[in-house]
Amino acid sequence: MPKLECKNVWKVYGSRPEAYSGLVRQGRVQPDDIRKLRESGAIIAAADVSFDVNVGEILVLMGLSGSGKSTVLRCISQLVQPSAGTIRLDGECLSSMSPSDLVEVRRHKMGMVFQNFGLLPHLTVVENVEFPLKVQRTALAVRRERALEMVALVGLAGKENAYPYELSGGQQQRVGIARSLASEPDLWLLDEPFSALDPLIRRQLQEEFLRLQRDLKKTIVFVTHDIMEALRVGDRIAIMKDGLIVQIGTPQDIVLNPVNEYVARFTAEVPRYRVQKVGCIMEGLSGDLNVSADLSTALSCDMAVEDAFEHFRDRDRVPVVDADGRLVGQLTASRIVNHLAKN
């Protein structure tokens, strides 16, 4: 069972909810329907959005501003009540929960990081981090210990007693990350967490985020408008436009098999070798293949082609193995060059 399930989620502002309820029942919604609805005066932030997120997976919601990605995230956290559709966390439907049950879910199962950090200006770093525990009335000693642990985890040890205004943007978002992890949530929601930061800091925090995730293995929904960021962090990416999900798939799918012009334009600048896996361009095992038996330097078939380049520094053919270490094929330098030339 998926950790998080979104099924036919709609968020429509404005009057006349009956106008789209017909569409809700119909099932598959076309962009034309949405256009007609908009012309009738409805403001559609999310239309018929469905996806699952599995345990330990990072799903990225990607789209331009106004595409509805943040609305979907807010529907998941129930900061915004969806107009229709169901959202299930661990099989429990969030939208039909009582307010007090919802408070419990938020206290124990969800953590959220905000674009503009959302730090409480009157609290120090450590007080901000322990805030979620404070509202649960955890004893001071316990929550302080946990908060200090989190502060150290995000690399802010020594800044515990600073106030938000004394920190740089990157440091502030580290506090935001630490706070969202303080109550050990299973579901981690990130709303453009790095968009307000400058490119170098953004890159650095993305790497740290991935490092944290390798240890923590949370279930993550990550919102961004930056395609490079989406490709870097996402296990799967959902591209949104005008409230609809246009395409959902692995980074490789998105870049190599865009469903339409819109998605293709997004990924036009992305070098193919960055997402393409070694397994896709290698020569499979066949009779005339002459592969040396030494597999210690072999490439893994899920490796991005980009990362394979350095293996060709002193030779021109390298064996490829699958996840279990079995030999599945080989990659030659000329094959890579041919492939690059084709794109």
């Binding site: 408070v103 419990e104 124990h108 953590g111 503009n116 200006p121 979620p132 509202v135 706070r179």
Partner: peptide
């Protein structure tokens, strides 16, 4: 009060009363 502040309190599982006293009023101080 920035909407993020109220949302932070909501996401931390604050009750309406806690949201007012611990997050919104101190921010609007």
């Amino acid at each position: 009060v920035p909407s993020a502040i109220s949302e932070v309190a909501l996401m931390a599982g604050a009750t309406p009363w806690q949201r007012l006293w611990l997050a919104e009023v101190p921010t609007a101080r």
